[in-house]
Simulated assay, not measured.
Amino acid sequence: MKQQEFLNIVLPFRDKMYRLARRILVSTDEAEDAVQEVLLKLWKGKERMSNYKNPEAFAMTMTKNYCLDRLKSKQAGHLKIVHSNYQSPHARLQDQVEANDGVRMVFEIMETLPEQQKMIIQLRDVEQYEFDEIAEILGMKPTAIRVALSRARKAVREALIKKYNYGVS
């Protein structure tokens, strides 16, 4: 496989790999490093790339596994998940502030979810993957993905209601 063929296959989903890495790791630098490492591994195994039914799912799985391994490593004791702020150039200032607060609050709540639910909600609701693709990436059954996603959404919804009601039920 030539370099251009490889780039044509991999470049369309490189940003998704980065967003997943950013969701799992602490900083943009860590996420960029993770994506570079995964791309390097994919390049080294480029001859086997045609054997994969879904190269994107394979790359996303590699990214997830690399990031989780990175979190488990001793050097990564300082890593935690963060999110960049949402911005809408057309919103009024008040709307923009409210949207930023709401999005920030949702992502803060997502941080409290169990790791598996966090990845599922990221892949489904942020990255817009189909259930079968998520199942392939995470090595789970689509039914288990749906259950975990439902529980994650319910936890986020309940936490938002609690925050917006200032803890008053």
Rank of each mutant, 00 (worst) to 15 (best):
G139F: 04
V10E: 03
E136I: 04
R23P: 01
K16A: 09
Y129F: 15
Y18D: 04
K16L: 12
W43P: 09
A59H: 05
K72R: 12
K74R: 09
Q3I: 12
D33P: 05
K16E: 14
A91L: 15
M119V: 15
V10N: 06
R23H: 10
D95Y: 05
D101K: 11
R153N: 11
Y52V: 07
Q36G: 08
I145E: 08
K118L: 09
A159S: 02
Q87T: 15
L39P: 04
D29W: 00
A57T: 10
T63W: 01
L25R: 04
D101T: 14
H90K: 11
S27W: 01
H90C: 08
K16Y: 13
I134N: 09
M1K: 10
F13R: 14
V106W: 01
R22I: 03
K154G: 00
E98M: 09
Q96E: 03
K64R: 15
D132R: 15
A99M: 11
L138T: 13
A57I: 03
M110K: 03
K2M: 08
A152Y: 05
V103R: 08
M1G: 13
M49N: 10
E5N: 08
E32Q: 08
G167P: 01
L79V: 02
E130C: 04
M60F: 13
N100R: 11
V156W: 05
A144V: 10
N8Y: 09
S84D: 12
K2D: 15
A76H: 06
E47W: 05
E30F: 02
S73R: 10
F58I: 15
R92S: 10
A135S: 12
K141L: 09
G102W: 07
P89D: 00
E130H: 12
M119Y: 11
V38P: 00
M119Q: 15
E108V: 01
A21C: 02
D15K: 15
L20V: 09
Q36A: 13
L79A: 02
V35P: 07
L39A: 14
Q116P: 01
G167T: 00
V38N: 01
Y164G: 07
G139N: 05
